[in-house]
Amino acid sequence: MTALLDGYNFAFLDEQTKRMIRRALLKAVAIPGYQVPFGSREMPLPYGWGTGGIQVTAAVIGLDDTLKVIDQGADDTTNAVSIRRFFQRMTGVRTTVKTREATLIQTRHRVPETPLREGQILIYQVPIPEPLRWLEPRETETRKMHALSEYGAMHVKLYEDISRHGQVSTAYDYPVLVNGRYLMRSSPIPKFDTPKIHMCAALQLFGAGREKRIFAVPPYTDVRPLDFEDHPFSVESWPTSCALCGSADSFLDEIVLDDQGGRMFVCSDTDYCADRRAAGHAGPATTPAEVTT
């Protein structure tokens, strides 16, 4: 455990700032999917590296919380390690890699495979919160489009995907309509995870530090991916199962083994994979003992 750092307030931000962020969070929860501007602070980690998620976590974390931080589904990727360490130094709260044990989970790019429960908070790091940004670069215009629910242009893009590729070619950051009202970007998680946002038991908070926006999906909120009646939304599936735990229903990372085309697929969610292996599941490629070193 890393030593607590002197000279800084609990969770780095001063209490006034935390209150300001919590007010923005309350507003975000009250208007699901609406992007609330907030006075994002300069953090000691760079913009684009999770400052939005970090500020949200800092604003809601308390001494009795248990924090899990993942990046790409894994607890041990460098930025997840760095952010977890930051909160260890700034709060001293308990951290975990277990999805079930965590009260707060800060994530980048994934939703854990283990279903979340009531009382948990999932905090997403968001680089670009605006779903209309690639169609319209101007904030003044996109805010109007949200205010007036002018989301037709989004479907034009989906139409174009289908006519060009026979399917929607958005693989991650899939646009969703929250509570039947606001168009939202799904943070960017792969579209495999998009259905997990819908009617989730946990509170989902989204923080974009550089873009200074907070938005939220309260527990059990309707979240629908945009699609056409005759081309419904669908998620990826793999022709293979996890080489380590044998899971056939989790998001798999592709690991390149050599330059001869050799590769294997393993769970992106390291905790989920470890859990399954601990429960005695095994994949075709290896034994569990070889990968925990």
Binding site: H109, I189, D253, E254
Partner: peptide, 12 residues
């Protein structure tokens, strides 16, 4: 930063 989850989705 690692982007391999999104990249995997694109590869797919």
């Amino acid at each position: 930063l690692p982007h391999h989850v999104d990249f995997q989705a694109e590869l797919h």
